[in-house]
Design a protein around this nucleic acid. Sequence first.
DNA 1: TTATTTTTGTTGCATTTACAACATTCTAAA
DNA 2: TTTAGAATGTTGTAAATGCAACAAAAATAA
Lengths: 150, 150
Amino acid sequence: MKEILREIGTIARALDSISNIEFKEYELTKGQYLYLVRICEHPGIIQEKLSEILKVDRTTAARAIKKLELNGFIERKDDPYNRKIKKLFPTEKGESVYPYIRSEHIHSDYVALAGFSDEEAETLFQLIQRVRKNIEVDWEFVKKGNKRKY
Amino acid sequence: MKEILREIGTIARALDSISNIEFKEYELTKGQYLYLVRICEHPGIIQEKLSEILKVDRTTAARAIKKLELNGFIERKDDPYNRKIKKLFPTEKGESVYPYIRSEHIHSDYVALAGFSDEEAETLFQLIQRVRKNIEVDWEFVKKGNKRKY
DNA sequence: TTATTTTTGTTGCATTTACAACATTCTAAA
DNA sequence: TTTAGAATGTTGTAAATGCAACAAAAATAA
């Protein structure tokens, strides 16, 4: 069995660390870029959904989002039909940093795929998506308090 | 440009979260499994090297390792030829949990690769390793305080 | 040899992370 | 319709994370 997940963990830590350093310039503290990009791409998304997409703990997402709001990157709007939820939208300020996050991410993808043919990149993308889909089932299972058997 | 790194981040968060929950059973707190497996596999490794391999901050590694020692999973030994370094070794207790970490990881790899042919798994492994090598260059560069241009 | 620089390790401090426990509102079942 | 359960959000608390700043030893340069 090849240690694919170990490699994935290493890559993810490296990337997250790079991004966190690079986004300090835009007053984004650790982890915040994650939420902000998604809110820009899915305006109106709610916090619960965001935590599911990103695979972060509900309460961690809650606090990150609170801070994004506090710092003026996003705003929360009540839904007239569902008083439980708060829809999240980027502010002007949030929209204005989005392109910088995008470029950073595009650059990292570019670096990551250095030496890859178009076909190899496409293959990797397809395979990694399948891994993500496989793993998210277990994540929800375990996060809900269930125990995996193995 | 395909969002490969975004997928990788999501997978890594999901897996880390699963592992952290599953290893509580062995009295390992958040993140500790990472260091313990590597120390078991590379007895005598030093903390600095560990942080480079794993791509975690030096000081975070330092504290995780301190805690592993405090809880009896590993021990540190002075090197007679180099008074600066402290070599890390698993204790009996550390060795005894290692197999459980291994099985968990193997199971996760198994889940991740569900539906993959042997060839697809091998391809993914090769490609992902290349990504890791590409990215670690930038990690060291940025961690050392340099600024990427893009 | 002496002086610099690099390597390795630590600690203070502010922040993030995540479990547990709770409160509301909504949805589905009885 | 009432009730039980699920969905969504919050807060308290303990712990992990990571930057800055430091110290000591080793490696390299002058």
